[in-house]
């Protein structure tokens, strides 16, 4: 009887451990294929990897600028001369689909993840 209970506990904890392990792996790891796309006024400025730290200065025709900082797998706009500075106040983005938008400069910084776009599928 005791032996059976022991076997029960072992197999159930195995399943729980696998689940916990997968849970950890999934939520700790960020998607390594994600990229940052910077688009100003509908025109693509460039696309950068999230893994490499980089500072991109985006300037427009009339002298406005936004400073986009990529570091530690996160992206934020660290400085800009737009009137409302909403883009600077937004928190860092790191997950596929997230974006920072600066309306006065018509700037869109968006994270593009290959994984994300594949997810739309019918399974049931």
């Amino acid at each position: 009887m005791i032996k059976k209970v022991k076997a029960d506990v072992i197999i159930i904890s195995c399943v729980l451990m696998v689940a916990a392990l997968l849970f950890g792996v999934i939520y700790m790891n960020d998607d390594p294929t994600a990229e940052v796309s910077i688009v100003r006024d509908g025109e693509r400025i460039g696309q950068y990897s999230l893994l490499e730290d980089e500072t991109v200065t985006v300037t427009d025709d009339v002298g406005g600028y936004n400073l986009v900082l990529i570091s530690n797998g996160e992206v934020r706009v660290c400085d800009a001369d737009c009137p409302d500075k909403l883009c600077v106040k937004q928190k860092s983005i790191s997950k596929g689909g997230e974006s920072i938008i600066c309306l006065p400069h018509k700037l869109v910084v968006q994270i593009i993840s290959k994984e994300e776009s594949d997810l739309d599928a019918v399974t049931n």
Binding site: V15, L22, L119, A121
Partner: peptide, 19 residues
């Protein structure tokens, strides 16, 4: 069917639910 690792997100939930 959908050939993506995105499905991995679902595994822990379904394991616990099945249990």
């Amino acid at each position: 069917t959908i050939q993506t690792y995105g499905i991995l997100y679902y595994v822990p939930i379904l394991l616990i639910a099945g249990l």
